[in-house]
Every structure is written in C-alpha cells, then in structure tokens.
Amino acid sequence: MHFNLVEQNYQVTVWNRTPARADAFIRRGAVLASSAASAIAASPITIICVADYHVSTSILDQEPVKSALAGRVLIQLSTGSPQQARDLEPCARFKCP
C-alpha cells in the first residue's frame, strides 16, 4: 500500500467496501468514512482505485455518490481501456454541474 498523501500530512478520508482493508490508512492518520458518498463529500478531490471500471461504475453510479461528485475532481486509477475511461467521464455520465 502507498501512504504518500497521509505521510505528507494531507487530510485523507478513506472508504472501502471492506472497512478492515482501510485499517492501515487509519493507523497512519486517515479518517474512515461510512460510505463512498461521505468520503467524496470530505474533499474537493477524490481518488478511486478499484479492480476495474465495472467495479468503479457500480460504486459511482449510486445516487448519493453522484450527488456528492458535483463540483469535485475525480481521479480514476482503476484498470480499463481508453474507451472505458471516456465512457466513465464523470461530467458526461454522472451529470456533474
């Protein structure tokens, strides 16, 4: 795991579908969010890194998450093709203002 943002003293909020997997980040000073939407709402920048774009879409396509993304930057680090990246572009797919 990489803890660069936490180790550089950035305020980091994390969420994981399996909360115990965030424990290493919490021990280093990150804050655990209770949901993906609350993690997104905690910062103007969100980084998502899951197995692939299918999983990413299943998380991002939930109504509370779509609302939380409004006006925020989403950095997608999940695996996918260039076309999948274009298809997932948040302001097109999730109607961000």
Rank of each mutant, 00 (worst) to 15 (best):
M1K: 12
H2S: 14
L5W: 10
E7H: 14
Q8E: 13
N9L: 12
Y10G: 01
Q11T: 09
V14W: 02
V14F: 06
W15D: 00
W15T: 00
N16E: 07
T18N: 14
P19D: 04
P19I: 15
R21Q: 14
R21E: 14
A30S: 03
V31S: 14
V31K: 15
A33R: 07
S38F: 06
A39C: 15
I40W: 06
A41M: 06
P44T: 09
I45S: 10
I47M: 12
I47L: 14
I48G: 01
C49E: 01
D52Y: 05
V55Q: 15
S56V: 08
S56I: 02
S58Q: 15
L60Y: 05
L60D: 00
L60V: 00
D61Q: 12
D61N: 15
Q62C: 04
V65T: 01
S67M: 12
S67G: 04
A68W: 01
G71W: 08
V73H: 08
V73D: 10
V73Q: 13
I75T: 05
Q76L: 11
Q76W: 05
Q76C: 13
S78T: 06
S78A: 13
T79Q: 11
T79R: 04
T79F: 09
S81D: 08
D87I: 01
L88E: 07
L88S: 06
P90W: 12
P90K: 02
C91F: 10
F94Q: 00
K95G: 03
P97R: 10
